[in-house]
């Protein structure tokens, strides 16, 4: 199959805010606004941005934990809304997830084999012998000993629990795994183990990843493509190495300059942004980044820039539009 596994087209999610008399809808939070991306087989899309930028909502939309307000998700070329029940089931099987907190993501009252087998027994009719065999194979795949199957989650350390969570996400041989901050809750010395495991599994099983993290170096390390989000919008998206090495959008530049150095000798331009991320309840008019942008122009407060090709990636910034009008 040549096309992308999952594509998002103008994906939008607004949350109504109710308040006042009779709980009227008083405002909307534009959590995700017109977001488009595609994830190719065997590739990783890294999604970065600060809290409130919409990256977790995007993940929930892809996982069907939230319904989009507008826009669509295409799975292997077909719009999810047009799929019938069985095909939607197929989508659910093909898209699994690993979340940040390995203490919250495993049911404390279930044994490890039940946890890992749950997606299997939900989707397939299998004998208990076959289930046990599959669980054993999954445990081996993520590097846990066989006897883990009979234990409860609390008997494992954070890193081992995350391995259990990964084993479970692989039970149905999915095509895409959504990784929402999979290592940020883990000890520093464990993170590399898990990142390596995820990379090995990708190579071995041809998985696609949607990788969400706030650690930019980890995202750059894991991803083929990086998308940078700010207040619900993608402001820059392109090849991971290119974006990491020469960010173009002023926000991406500030974000990557804020990333901590890996060595005290590492010299780079420090851009310290003024102010804080505005509330997504009332995003600024025009370019949403303009109140904090060091390069803001008069035009930025009026007109919202669109994503345009610039130096091998897409950037939504008036700086790069030159004289050609924004419409394409």
């Amino acid at each position: 199959m040549a096309g992308p596994v999952v594509e998002a087209l103008h994906l939008t999610k607004h949350f109504p805010v109710r308040g006042g008399f009779l709980a009227r809808e008083t405002a909307v939070v534009r959590a995700v606004d017109e977001v488009s991306f595609s994830i190719e087989p065997g590739r990783t899309l890294g999604l970065v941005g600060e809290s409130g930028c919409g990256k977790t909502t995007t993940a929930k939309l892809v996982l069907l934990l939230e319904q989009p307000t507008a826009g669509m998700i295409r799975f292997e070329g077909r719009d999810l809304q047009t799929l019938d029940r069985t095909m939607l089931h197929g989508y659910r099987r093909s898209v699994q997830a690993v979340f940040q907190d390995p203490f919250a993501s495993l049911n404390p009252r279930m044994r490890v084999d039940q946890i890992i087998a749950e997606p299997l027994v939900t989707h397939e009719r299998l004998g208990s012998g076959e289930v046990a065999k599959r669980v054993a194979r999954l445990l081996e795949l993520v590097g846990l000993p066989d006897r883990s199957a009979d234990l409860f989650p609390h008997e494992f350390s954070g890193g081992q629990r995350q391995r259990i969570a990964i084993a479970r996400s692989l039970a149905l041989s999915p095509k895409l795994v959504v990784l929402d901050e999979p290592v940020s809750a883990l000890d520093v010395s464990i993170r590399a183990q898990i990142l390596n495991l995820l990379r090995d599994l990708q190579a071995q099983l041809g998985l696609s990843y949607l990788f969400i993290a706030h650690d930019l170096a980890a995202v750059a390390h894991m991803s083929h493509t990086i998308a940078v989000m700010y207040l619900g919008r993608i402001v820059e998206i392109g090849d991971a190495a290119t974006v990491a090495a020469t960010p173009k959008h002023p926000y991406t530049q500030a974000l990557f300059s804020a990333a901590l150095p890996s060595h005290p000798g590492e010299k780079r331009e420090e851009i310290i942004l003024a102010g804080e991320v505005p509330s997504p309840l009332a995003p600024p008019a025009g370019c949403r980044f303009h109140p904090r942008c060091p390069h803001a122009m008069e035009r930025c407060g009026r007109e919202e820039p669109t994503l345009l090709r610039e130096a091998g990636r897409l950037v939504a910034c008036h700086l790069y539009e030159g004289v050609i009008p924004a419409r394409s």
């Binding site: 996982l63 934990l65 659910r92 940040q100 907190d101 993501s105 749950e118 939900t122």
Partner: peptide, 16 residues
């Protein structure tokens, strides 16, 4: 909690 979210992702029914 995440494990309930993951159960939805795994395709479990509400009853389950």
């Amino acid at each position: 909690r995440d494990f309930v979210r993951l159960a939805i992702v795994a395709g479990c029914s509400k009853r389950t």
